Simulated assay, not measured.
Amino acid sequence: MAGPRIDAFRRRALLAGLALSAGAANAQWGGAIGYGTDNVYRGVSLSSGQPAWLADLHYRGDGWTAGFGASQERPPFQSSGAQLTLYADRYWSLDDDWSAKVGVVHYESPWNVWRNELRYNDVTAAIGWRGRWRLSIALSPDMPGIFSYLGAQKGFAGSAELSYRQPIRGRLSANAGLGVAHLHVAGLSYRYGSAGLSYGVGDVYIYTSLLWSSPDALRYNTGARDQTRWVTSVVWSF
């Protein structure tokens, strides 16, 4: 969903209905199903630039959310599979304008031939202002080096993203974001960004954005070779 997110297909906080808004008073189940023209993760494609689906199911209540997610991946020279995630978030309303969250995410790619190397974890934190500005940070102690042709090595990785949403009219919004990522085990750093529009109809949102990444992002072993591309996604939340 290339909209208020830099990751065109990946902002779990949006799918989980958090949007850095900690006002949910009642425990409830929710989720989302979507389809997009690419599966982009921190500026790089996990589906070799091809269309991909996603699904999310979560339970939210009293400042906590826990859930399970899945998104299609198409590794180079392999059959299509899926990346699975388990996550938990704790979020707060700091005042009428500011909200924040911290969380953990566990990743698995059971159909990938590198499945053992692609098992890793993230610790995340984010702060947002009035649903407009959002700053997020993710740190991983065991990011796999396979993303940059380093085989089974693992090491520290981190990323930071700043995104902005500007309502235009009704449920039409303009969205933009910038991010930077560093994979220490590979000595690799790169930048990425997005700019586009989102529109909501009932429980369905449509996102379209122009995505950009710096040349070093192409060193990732994910099959994508374009520094810029348009990505459009449709997501139904329930």
Score class of each variant (00 low, 15 high):
117 E>S: 13
118 L>Q: 06
119 R>M: 06
121 N>M: 10
122 D>R: 07
122 D>T: 10
122 D>M: 05
123 V>T: 03
124 T>V: 10
127 I>F: 06
127 I>W: 02
128 G>M: 09
128 G>E: 08
129 W>R: 15
129 W>Q: 12
130 R>Y: 14
133 W>C: 08
134 R>L: 15
134 R>D: 15
135 L>S: 12
139 L>I: 12
139 L>E: 05
141 P>C: 13
141 P>D: 13
145 G>Q: 01
146 I>T: 13
147 F>A: 07
147 F>D: 03
148 S>G: 07
150 L>G: 01
151 G>S: 06
151 G>H: 03
152 A>T: 03
153 Q>D: 11
153 Q>S: 12
154 K>V: 09
154 K>M: 05
154 K>W: 04
154 K>A: 09
156 F>R: 15
161 E>W: 02
162 L>M: 09
163 S>N: 07
165 R>K: 15
165 R>F: 05
166 Q>C: 11
167 P>A: 14
167 P>G: 13
168 I>D: 14
169 R>H: 15
170 G>W: 15
170 G>D: 15
171 R>P: 08
171 R>H: 14
172 L>C: 13
172 L>Q: 15
173 S>I: 09
173 S>Y: 11
175 N>T: 08
175 N>K: 03
175 N>W: 00
176 A>Q: 04
176 A>T: 09
176 A>D: 03
177 G>M: 02
178 L>D: 00
180 V>W: 03
180 V>D: 00
180 V>H: 08
182 H>M: 06
183 L>A: 13
184 H>L: 12
